[in-house]
Computed example of a mutant assay.
Amino acid sequence: MSSGSAATGYRSRNARASTSWSVRFCAASSKKENTMLVLKVTMVEGRTPEQKAELIRRLAEAAGRHLGFPVEEIRTVIYEVGRDEWGIGTMTMAERDRAASSQPGD
């Protein structure tokens, strides 16, 4: 069985709470010099299956192009988190949503 980490990375975006996501990647190689890249995406639930399929396609293409991996050797896993399970500061996203919707003038 092979193990080892050839590369790791992290990127996050928080333009708005509803678009929060992160991507982690690692490359494991074996004694046979075979390499597989795993992309792990964590995001707030609510995207359609079509949106997730497009994200997987684009991430694999971009990673393959920029990191030099064959697309066939790239695996993508999406972890979805509920708004009650994602915290920002001292509040969950659900609490922040409720607080924002109760603001005067909305």
Results as ranks from 00 to 15, higher is better:
S18N: 04
R24W: 08
K32D: 13
L37D: 02
G46H: 07
R13I: 06
T42R: 04
F69I: 05
S20E: 01
L37K: 02
E54L: 15
E54P: 01
S22I: 03
R57H: 07
A28Q: 12
L39Y: 01
Q51P: 05
E33A: 13
A63V: 02
L39V: 12
S30K: 09
N14Y: 04
G64P: 14
A62R: 12
K32M: 10
W21V: 08
L67I: 08
V38N: 03
C26S: 13
V71W: 08
C26A: 10
V38E: 00
W21N: 01
A17N: 04
S20W: 14
A27I: 08
P49A: 14
S18P: 00
A28R: 06
R65E: 13
R47W: 01
A53M: 13
F69H: 09
N34A: 08
G46L: 00
R57K: 15
N34G: 01
F25A: 10
E33Y: 14
R13F: 10
G68T: 07
S29D: 05
T48S: 15
A15D: 14
V44M: 15
C26L: 13
A28E: 07
E61P: 11
A53G: 06
M43C: 03
R65Y: 02
R13E: 09
E33W: 11
A63M: 12
